[in-house]
Amino acid sequence: MHRLTMLMRALAVLTLALLLPVLAQADGLIAGKSFGNDREIVVTFKAPVDQAVFADPAHYLVYEESDPDIRLELADVRLDSTGKIAFLGFKEPLNTTRPHVVSMIDLPAAVTGRTVETFRVAKPYLGYLLSILVSALLINNFVFTKYLGLCVFFGTSKRRDTAKGMGVTFTIVMVVSALMSWFFYQFVMKPHGLDFLQIVVFIGLVSLTVQAVDTILRKVNPVLFNAFGVYLVLVIANCVIIAVPLIMANNEYNFLETFMLALGAGGGFLLALYMMASVRERMELARVPKSFKGVPIAFIVAGQFALAFLGFSGLSLF
């Protein structure tokens, strides 16, 4: 229980650290800006603004940051009743994955002190990080939608205790080895054009992590080692552990993104294992045809889970 509170605290600190830069922005006229629905940008002003100027589409220039020459066509601009929030409506749906630039031009100098006000609208980075996490956890769950790590998955999902032990051990090793892989990839392999050594280096780092965790745990906390030591050997036979660094290298993730991906992959594996173990414990009481007892029925249950996880496809929370 104590470990859990520690974990929660660490998570809270991390979230705060990531949120701070988002909160500490905005000066001048603009208090906030964000994407509304798929063809809308919402701009919040610090004080109520003039309807005649700020509700006129002619005062706005909007473009995608990478396409400064292509102006996006505005359909209309509405101010809400307080006069503090402007809704910019567009004729075409926006590509909200890309940052947009909004320029307010020909402003009366008396209002703001300058005639042009330019700012960037982008999805918050924290949201992006969380979307990587959720994606690895649910949408692209490594077990049920990418079909990886199945040997260990079927081997250790017989009992819930085993499932928990395996899941937690795996997550820890996953995060540590993914971060080390990221470090090696960015600072050793990429600068020297050694991309083709990916497989060897990544599997080597995984073995190293497993060995290190094994040694440290044995010395520092023998009780924990007795509980989790047996799973450490199995970690290396799990293809998720090598798939995550490969995905990281393929997508050129940065440190935080890699961390989120590894955490999501580990958490997703834990989730899958635990759910599967819960079902299999109950299934022992069920009357399964003799030829299907054990692994065959487990496969069919996994297929049903996979069907259910297909429902997460395309989910976007952030």
Binding site: T145, S291, F292, P296, A298, F299, A302, G303, A306
Partner: peptide, 21 residues
């Protein structure tokens, strides 16, 4: 569909077990 692999493998394993018995 990719996820049908689970069902397919499960059913085939069961079938082979049946034949064996």
């Amino acid at each position: 569909l990719p996820l049908a692999g689970f069902f397919c493998v499960g059913l085939m394993m069961g079938f082979f077990n049946y034949i064996e018995t």
